[in-house]
Amino acid sequence: MVAQGLEKRFGDFTAVAGIDFSISRGESFGFLGPNGAGKTSTMRMVACMSPHTGGQLSVLGMDPRTSGSTIRSRIGLVPQQDSLDDELTVEDNLYLYGRYFDLPKRLIRERAVRLLEFAQLTERAKDKVEPLSGGMKRRLTIARSLISEPELLILDEPTTGLDPQARHLLWDRLYRLKSQGVTLVITTHYMDEAEQLCDRLVVMDKGRIVAEGSPRALIEQHSTREVVELRFGLDQQHQGATAIADLAERIEVLPDRVLLYVHDGDAAVAEVHRRGLLPESSLVRRSTLEDVFLRLTGRSLVD
């Protein structure tokens, strides 16, 4: 999949302002960004459901403008909002979705058995969808998107709103798909999800790509190896920060704590103590993608 200068406008509003990326077969690629960054608009263009208004896009080597239907027959989409028929059974939801793709009944039934097992929903096959939990519905949506055995699976915020158990189960299922050679394109605003699942990712902000690389490379590029989190008493926050500003490559003063971006966290903490400062608590941790994300997209709320 290749995009060059890809753009999406709705009237005067520009949702995606010219982005470039390329995703190879079998890769697992993430789009990170705060709400409103243009991730979903990008996914809808890539899924050939929404025509792009500028730039070039090629999916599975084809042009969505002319071959949308053919491309869609070979990709699976897990939309941000579930679109299951609550009144129908789990099984029927899979069956009808397979019929959208014109698959033969027998083939759908065969695949449905395997997919329900995959989604751990075999016991609920004959139940209506309505009373299922959020996690179950999400797993069913993913199972449904696999009924056509897609080469490319697009997941728009697959685990938003799920509890940790459900998220970990979903990650495991997605990891299995990836190991079977399915190309995954994932949007998320969960950093741990991106670190778990993505070989490579881009960070989007305000319709643009602001960084690109593997999770590790992005951390190396945009953050330090370790981060020290210090809590001083509320009124000593700034005082403390000024006294140690020279210790770190970058320092960030938040309302409740001070973050020191350093190469060696323990050494920095020792130096803080040597200078006679006594923070209420100190924590040394590795830099995460979240540090990169916040650095690139800012800490202020976007919507």
Binding site: S73, D85, E87, L88, D92, Y95, L96, R99, Y100, F101, D102, L103, P104, L107, R114, L115, F118, L146, S148, E149, P150, E151, R176, L177, Q180, G181, V182
Partner: peptide
């Protein structure tokens, strides 16, 4: 394996799209 092979062409029944939609209404 959940997916036998990605690139294999999918077997289809050959119904036009509108008929598939009608049949989904009928099923529902």
């Amino acid at each position: 394996q959940l997916l036998e092979s990605g690139a294999r062409p999918q077997p289809t029944v050959g119904w036009p799209g509108w008929l598939r939609v009608t049949s989904v209404y009928a099923h529902t």
